[in-house]
Design a protein around this nucleic acid. Structure first.
Length: 260
DNA sequence: AGGACGCCCTGTTCGC
DNA sequence: TGCGAACAGGGCGTCC
């Protein structure tokens, strides 16, 4: 599930459950998800410390130990679950962090496509991965400038984490639907008003999705999200939605409201 | 540079 | 109903 709104909710969940508690044990159940560290290295970085704060950049979550930062990426299926230790670990737990209060924070990822790492700081990580500005932090001026330097299809650009960080397949569809743009619309052909509208829609869609806990059933009626599947209908005009392939993913759009 | 692929995984959904 | 194929909200490397 994890695009920017999901990860922001994970961050808030992390804050509500896992700050300021001494870490007693660290279990790495899927070492393949570790990036440039080892179970021992992760244990050394976390044990006997506590998480003091969190940050998010795009789809990455960072937790500060006062020394190094824990970095979590959720791939396509990752999530967080805080529970009492004696309840056992949730299914698909790939990493669990146990606290001295007999609770644990489990990072689950059925599809094993996530990433667990350590960084000296969020900034160091962002720079090393060459991530773009966070989609909710970027100013309109920065946004317009970045856009003007690029060519290609609008959907691909929105999903490119090196341009803007945080937007994936689902929310790029939502943003394009609400802006009335076809997924393959050329960036160069966007006029000034389209560009400004795109910027405003990114912000409003992501903020609304965060508020709604990134849960499709909670989204406003005008959102495409709950309808984007085979046989789904446009919430604005009722037309049957169409799909196409873009940047290796399936885009859903309304052929009437988003004519090319 | 940008775009189309293939691949990494595995649970769920689709289509015959 | 049952089975294999295709697909799923991500990201990376390769090739053209």
């Amino acid at each position: 599930m994890p695009e920017l709104p999901d990860v922001e909710n994970f961050r808030r969940y992390f804050n509500a459950t896992s700050l300021h508690q001494r870490i007693s044990r660290v279990h790495v159940e899927e070492p393949a998800l570790l990036f440039e560290t080892s179970p021992q290295g992760l244990g050394r970085a976390l044990k006997r410390r506590d998480f003091q704060s969190t940050r998010r950049h795009g789809k990455y979550l960072f937790a500060d130990t006062g020394e190094r930062w824990l970095v979590l990426h959720f791939g396509m299926s990752g999530s967080l679950h805080y529970s009492k230790k004696d309840a056992g670990r949730p299914k698909y737990t790939r990493l669990s962090i146990e606290f001295e209060n007999d609770h644990q924070l489990a990072y689950t990822a059925p599809r094993k496509l996530g990433r667990i790492a350590l960084a000296d700081s969020p900034e160091e990580w962002i720079e090393a991965r060459e991530l773009g500005e966070d989609a909710l932090d970027i100013s309109e001026e920065q946004f317009l400038q970045k856009l003007s330097k690029r060519r290609g299809q609008v959907k691909s650009w929105l999903m490119d984490q090196h341009s803007l960080a945080g937007i994936g397949n689902i929310y790029s569809d939502e943003i394009l639907f609400q802006t009335g743009l076809h997924p393959k619309h050329s960036l160069q052909d966007l006029d000034e008003e389209d560009r400004k509208q795109l910027y405003r829609t990114i912000s409003s869609v992501l903020k609304t999705a965060i508020e709604k806990k990134a849960e499709p059933e909670r989204m406003p009626d005008k959102f495409l999200l709950p309808h984007r599947k085979q046989g789904g209908h446009c919430p604005a005009c009722g037309a049957t939605l169409k799909s196409l392939s873009a940047a290796g993913r399936t885009a859903w759009y309304c052929p009437r409201c988003q004519a090319d």
